[in-house]
Each structure stands twice: as C-alpha cells, then as structure tokens.
Amino acid sequence: MFICLCQIGSHGSLTTLNPGLKRFFAIMMRTMSKLRSMRDAIAEFVPDGSSVAVGLQLEQMIPFAAGHEIIRQKKRDLRLIGPISDCLFDQLIGAGCVKDVVAAWVGNVMMGQAYNFRRAVEAGEVRVFNMTNFTIALGLQAGAIGVPFLPTRTARGSDVPKGNHFFYQIISPFEPKETLLAVRAIAPDITIVNVQRADAEGNAHCWGNFGVMLEAVRAAKKVIVVAEEIVEQEVIASDPNRTVIPGFLVSAVVHEPFGAHPSPVQGYYSRDSEFFRAYHAETKTPEDFVRWRSKWVDGVRDRSGYLRMLGSDRVNSLRVKKHAYSAPADYGY
C-alpha cells in the first residue's frame, strides 16, 4: 500500500497507472475514505443514548440535514449539547429523540421561543441543564484539553449553577480568598459540524464565526463533518490556517449541499429567514408540529428530496449574489 501511495505521489495522477494497480488503488481509496451518505453516517455514529453536540456556530451552519436524518431514523434518548439552538433542538425534541439538553438557550432566534422545547420541559419529558454561552464553551474546552474542569468568574450570584452538576464552587489555590466556579468538562459522544469544504479524510476548511465549534470537535469522541463541497486534499493543504478540523479526529465526512438550510453558510447561501418565520407559525401545537414534520422531514427521503420540496427558485434565491473573496495568503518560502 505504501509503495502504491509513493507511485501515485510521483506520477501525480491515477491515469498514469496500469489498470491492475489502478483498480487496487480505487478499492484502497474507498476503504480509506470516510465519505458516507448522511443515512449511513447517522446510522453508524449516532446510536440511541448518545450525547450529541450540534449547532455549535450559533445561527450559522446548523447541520439541519443531519438532525432531520436523526429524526427519520427515530433515534432515542439523546443528550443534546450546544450553546444556543436556533430551532434544531426544538425539532429533535418534538420528534421524541431527546432525553435531556445541556444548553444555554433553546428557541427560534428571530421569533423568540420554540414550542416543542417549552412543552416538553414544562411537562417534565425533557430535562434541561441550564448553562450559559461562556460555560458551555468552558466545559467543551475542558473536554478538549483533557482536564476535568475549568474555572471561571461568570454566573456567581446567578441561579444557573444551583442544583446543576455541571458547576461546583471552588477556592483558587493561588488566591485563597478568591472563590470561583468550576465548570465540569463536557465530552460529547459525537460532534456534528457543517463546514464549507472538506477532503475525503475529513480535513476541513471553515470560515466565518466559529462559536464553540473548535472546542466541540476536539472534545468529542467522534466527529461527523458535513460539507458543502468535497475537495482534493491539496485545496485544504493550500491554506492550513483555515483548516479548523484535522482529519484524524473525524469519523465520517458527508457531502451534503444546502445541508444547513435554513441557516446560512457564508460564501454558499444566505439565511432563509422566511423559513424560520414559517416554522414559528406552523408549529404552535403538537398537531401542527406533526404536520410540519411529516412534510419537511418524514415526507422526504433525504436532503435532495427536501431541496426539491423547497423548489429550485427558492434555493437559487438563497445562493450568493455577490461574491467577496479574501486576499490570498502567501505560504511560500
């Protein structure tokens, strides 16, 4: 295998290989590649009872396609982890996939509250561990760097830490009169992120606002990367500062264009604000949500079906209207 790779490297292209070697290489690449369909990735890496970190870049790049596949596969007893959730947690809760939530905010950002979340929490069906945005970041960072907790000065005198096992009051070992809060490390079973582009091994470029994605990827036991585009390894290697996920942390790569709709992906498509408004209007009661879900989630096989339902006019209206490329960076020497 190693020899084969060296030969590829020196020739630079598959076409220069003899047919036997080419076939062998193709098989090898298939087994090495982490590319999966969304259906396979969710089936394999999101078992019932998992803790799932998702929606980590706040209102950008929310992996709705992954969430909808989780609903279609009727996953149960999940723990959802995230800073704020713009509708995705509400959908998973409404579909009965969720046991508890570790989050700072759950709702519909432009419209306010989300109904499934509210109903489920008020009925005691879903437990919430109230966090704050900063303490979610700290918990994931503790998980990412392999320590049991990180200290902070936030949330003192607030009710958020009360009766919440993610917090513990400690005294600074260096300033004995100083009390701090320890935030328990959070290590998700699986982190699902949406990015602009990745290669087949999961090395991923992302730009825009990161929220807590960087910590959540490193803290997780497994990572699914959902990418708008799959590119050659050389494209990712050309700009390593933009590589936010190294492939060795990644379990599966899913090529899913418009996988974050209705949330935006910078440089690919805008936010579909009308979709969030409609979700608010169309999911007020449990019966309303069942109707919404049977149309947009269970009524389609996959993301392509969802996009057909959305219609090409609407999809096209969300595409980038005016590109704004950054200046290239010179890595030469």
């Binding site: 870049q57 706040l58 209102e59 950008q60 800073p83 713009d86 950002v109 432009m110 945005n133 900063f134 970041a137 700290l138 960072q141 902070t152 000065r153 936030t154 730009w207 825009g208 606002n209 990161f210 929220g211 807590v212 994605m213 960087l214 910590e215 949330s263 935006p264 910078q266 805008s270 936010r271 604000s273 969030f276 704004a324």
Partner: peptide, 27 residues
Amino acid sequence: IYTMADPPNLLHATQCLDMMGVMGLLQ
C-alpha cells in the same frame, strides 16, 4: 440582520473569532 450570524455581519468584520475569544475578553 435578524441574527448575529447572518452573513452581512461576517462580511468585512474586524475579526471573526470564536466564543471563547470574545467571552475571554469579557471575563
């Protein structure tokens, strides 16, 4: 913009950092 992560809020930003960065400055 309707949310802080709407694309116009990222275009020509002074910096696109992460939550730990801005919350760290706050702390």
